[in-house]
């Protein structure tokens, strides 16, 4: 119970920071819209209609990348992370709080992106919406941990995408597969498996990333 309240306090703090600075979310929304428009021109007429769903997934992944890169910047700058690590809070709660906050930003950006996709390209199937929801969890669980790693080093903005993309490829497979194949349940199940496996791993290992 205290664990949940710690998580809420930490996530609320991130939302408050975003409300103050208004940096991340507007950037994510504008980016995903600009990307979708760019894809409209990148897709020649007569090409496969199925290709556009792949572009949607690439757009989601890159938008998440944009938000996650900065996820731990407030903590790593001026070492505020030390303050959180010193407090009697379970270290994994810091990670869960960050996952919650980044998830909120990503979902907010998608609330704009998905209708825009439906408007610009084609109607969304319920499978895609379900896949996006499942993928968001995986993206943020893995992304928050990798962001904490990348933020510890130099050149985090360059490093984070390199760490993130190879790990995110399975998400792409699950998402696209759920939309274009006859057996979406298999792909949704795979996304669920991905979420579970990496959530457990990240939950267990986060402490080691933020302590020395």
């Amino acid at each position: 119970m205290t664990y949940a309240r710690d998580v809420v306090a930490l996530a609320r703090k991130d939302l408050l920071l975003e409300l103050r600075a208004r940096e991340t979310l507007p950037a994510m929304v504008l980016f995903v819209l600009a990307t979708l428009v760019a894809f409209r021109f990148a897709l020649p007429a007569g090409g496969s209609e199925r290709a556009s769903i792949g572009l949607l997934w690439v757009a989601i992944l890159f938008t998440a990348l944009l938000g996650l890169t900065r996820a731990f910047v407030p903590e790593r700058e001026q070492r505020v992370l030390d303050g959180l690590v010193l407090s009697p809070v379970d270290r994994s709660a810091i990670w869960v709080g960050k996952v919650t906050a980044t998830l909120a930003f990503l979902v907010a950006a998608e609330l704009v992106a998905l209708p825009a996709y439906a408007l610009f390209f084609e109607r969304l199937s319920w499978e895609t919406v379900a896949a996006v929801a499942l993928a968001d969890v995986g993206i943020c669980t893995v992304g928050a941990l990798l962001a904490a790693m990348a933020a510890a080093g130099r050149a985090r903005e360059l490093l984070f995408p390199l760490l993130f993309l190879p790990l995110a490829l399975p998400i792409l497979v699950g998402g696209v597969g759920a939309a274009v194949t006859d057996t979406p349940a298999r792909y949704l199940g795979f996304l669920g498996l991905y979420d579970a496996v990496f959530a457990i791993l990240a939950w267990a290992s986060f402490e080691y990333v933020v302590t020395e």
Binding site: K13, L16, L17, R20, A21, P74, E77, Q78, R79, V80, D82, G83, L86
Partner: peptide, 10 residues
């Protein structure tokens, strides 16, 4: 510590 360990935006 050396740093105040507070969020500058808060």
């Amino acid at each position: 510590g050396h740093e105040p360990l507070v969020y500058r935006e808060l």
